[in-house]
Design a protein around this nucleic acid. Structure first.
Length: 111
DNA sequence: TATCTGACATCTG
DNA sequence: CCAGATGCCAGAT
């Protein structure tokens, strides 16, 4: 299985996440047929150019929005996109630039 | 080939 | 909740 096919499957799965719902990297990896490849999912989204893929609906375990080492700008952007489609996002307890989906289980897709 | 890296997941203290 | 440690595994260097 080459990376190109893996990426394609990841993109198809992400496109299937309905607006207002979110899921995790690990879940996408599992659905793609490659459990334990969550990091590869992250890589696939990182270099994504296709604007039709709702990457913002993919978050970390427990609904945490992953940092990008960019000071939280990317995470903040993702938080805004999610809020705009009705997902409740709140700042991680006591922290700056860190966010998480409130009531993650209620918004979770694919379980 | 050897190492380092990372939009991850889990567990422990 | 937080910080560390550990397991994971394909890409990049």
């Amino acid at each position: 299985m080459d990376a190109e096919v893996f990426h394609a499957r990841v993109y198809d799965l992400v496109r299937d996440i309905p607006s207002g719902k979110v899921t995790t990297y690990g879940q996408i990896a599992k659905l793609a047929g490659y459990p334990r490849h969550a990091r590869m999912v992250g890589a696939a989204l990182k270099y994504l150019q296709d604007t039709t893929v709702p990457w913002q609906r993919v978050v970390g375990s427990g609904g945490v929005i992953s940092e990008r080492g960019d000071g939280g700008e990317g995470a903040a952007h993702q938080a805004n996109l999610l809020r705009s489609e009705g997902v409740e996002v709140v700042p991680a307890q006591s922290d700056r630039g860190r966010w998480r989906v409130h009531s993650f289980a209620a918004y979770a897709w694919g379980t």
